[in-house]
Design a protein around this nucleic acid. Structure first.
Lengths: 124, 124
DNA sequence: GATCTATATGAATGTATAATTATATAGTTA
DNA sequence: TAACTATATAATTATACATTCATATAGATC
């Protein structure tokens, strides 16, 4: 059970993780610290864009940074993110299997009462 | 390690969870299935808004629904979300403790080289 | 079938956010 | 100090998204 203020904080965290670019950055950092330039190169993004995503990740406490000469090294500050991703991946896989079996289904408007009664929770 | 296509899927999941209203809805459903009307009342939101959030949660496979007469009962379809929230909460608490100790810190621009060398990862 | 209740959906609007371009800043080296 | 490298930031634009209001739909009851 979560406080009302805490909900906003948790939501913000999820929101920060809800961007493919940022997940890719985190994935890259999983192997070890990297400079902005390295990330830009490997991700084939623009430097300002990557820099902003890194700032957002930093503000969220997900990555840390350290200057070394001219470069700045970013690194994973909270390995929790990988556990999160693993959980989501597992659940996604389960869901994919379910969808395969049950096939696509649009919503309750189409549904007859009998169909509703016979279907299982989470049924699409 | 995650596929490139999978990253988009995972990001979408996080994005769906990155909305306070939706987290509140999920929290309500944790105690058991509820109708849209019940959720609207307890959340003090508008009916169309809650309905849309429910649709998004449903499309993401996080909740299921079943019609019962005139009402539609929504329920948790994937309890994984609560594990996710728990992980985030724990990590947030740790981070809060750290921030307390280190105090506010704006970014690397202000930082001298010495400050950078002495600080720890994730240091704000 | 008309009306009522519960829920979903479409259109309009405001707001947040990602991407891009141009520029500023910090540190290094000559 | 000037030029150079690496990174951050400001301004702009485009797009996605949440919210609201009005309305449509499905089922129940009369």
């Amino acid at each position: 059970m979560i406080h009302d203020r805490m909900i906003e904080v948790v939501a913000r965290r999820f929101q920060v993780l809800g961007e493919p670019c940022r997940l890719r950055i985190l994935q890259q950092l999983q192997r070890g610290p990297k400079t902005v330039g390295q990330i830009v190169t490997e991700l084939a993004g623009t430097q300002p864009n990557v820099s902003k995503h890194l700032q957002i990740l930093f503000d969220a406490g997900l990555v840390g940074r350290e200057r070394e000469g001219n470069s700045i090294f970013y690194s994973i500050a909270d390995p929790m993110v990988f556990k999160l991703c693993e959980l989501v991946c597992r659940s996604t896989a389960r869901r994919a299997a379910r969808v395969q079996r049950i096939a696509s289904f649009r919503g309750p408007r189409i549904r007859t009462r009998r169909a509703a009664a016979s279907s299982i929770r989470g049924g699409n």
